[in-house]
């Protein structure tokens, strides 16, 4: 879904740049609460993995492909604010070194894949995790649905930007139908990859998964480096 230069006019690109910069600034503060000595290296690795996974375009329909966005996966693994930072680094590397996604569209791409995909993916995950059984299966279903939804919603967000600042004179409804249709299919791939990777990490190190923290029993917590204050409950 990397938007190239030229699709959107300058005011829209500037506006999304401001939104993205604001989001990253807030994320820098929020990520401090999510990151410690144990999780910071994992966050760096998650970003590197997302970069790698985004290189793998899978076919979704005749003559069309898609790839993982990774917003939901990253948010569940390392936390939503950290995910915004990870996605931003991935998009920056892609735009600057690999000419994937325009430079003037970097704010747009960060908004779509860094903010919208992460926000929708993680928000959906938290909503579902609250009502689903507190099990590994519950975590995976919640993450899978979040991952699935994050893709068509990010596609719709692009359509919204196109409606406001698209350079071409194309009916917005036509663009919306095409974008949402194909990204529903890509969302299925997003869900499959997200569940597979998250399931693998949950198998070996459930204690490192941010989104699975609510599954931890006190006995598991006690094995972590002890906090100074005692648990009052």
């Amino acid at each position: 879904m990397h938007v190239p230069d030229g699709f959107l006019d300058a005011p829209t690109s500037v506006a999304t740049g401001v939104v993205a910069a604001g989001g990253v600034a807030v994320a820098l503060r929020g990520a401090r609460r999510e990151l410690d000595e144990r999780t910071a290296p994992l966050a760096g690795l998650t970003a590197a993995f997302v970069f790698a996974a985004q290189m793998i375009n899978f076919p979704v329909a005749a003559g069309t492909s898609g790839h993982l966005i990774g917003g939901a996966l990253t948010a569940v693994l390392v936390g939503p604010w950290t995910a915004v930072l990870c996605m931003t680094v991935v998009l920056l590397v892609q735009a600057v070194l690999f000419a994937d996604g325009g430079l003037t569209a970097l704010g747009t791409n960060t908004t779509l894949m860094g903010l919208v995909a992460v926000g929708v993916g993680y928000g959906t995950f938290r909503l579902l995790a609250a009502v689903l059984p507190r099990t590994r299966g519950g975590v995976l279903v919640a993450a899978g649905v979040g991952a699935f939804l994050s893709v068509p919603v990010a596609a719709l967000a692009f359509v919204g930007l196109f409606a406001v600042g698209g350079v071409a004179d194309v009916p917005v409804g036509t663009v919306a139908a095409a974008m949402v249709g194909v990204h529903l299919l890509i969302g299925l791939g997003e869900a499959v990859i997200t569940v597979a990777v998250l399931g693998a990490v949950l198998t070996v190190r459930p204690d490192l998964v941010h989104g699975a923290a609510y599954l931890r029993r006190p006995a598991d917590l006690a094995r972590r480096p002890a906090p100074v204050e005692t648990d009052s409950r």
Partner: peptide, 29 residues
């Protein structure tokens, strides 16, 4: 990896705004 256009590129081709894409300033990277 599939070399087919991705969802956005394909949409742009089908609905007729693909031509508005411009090369990135880093296209010569």
């Amino acid at each position: 990896a599939s070399s087919s256009p991705d969802g956005l590129e394909r949409t742009a081709q089908r609905t007729g705004f693909a031509a508005t894409a411009r090369d990135s300033a880093t296209a010569d990277s």
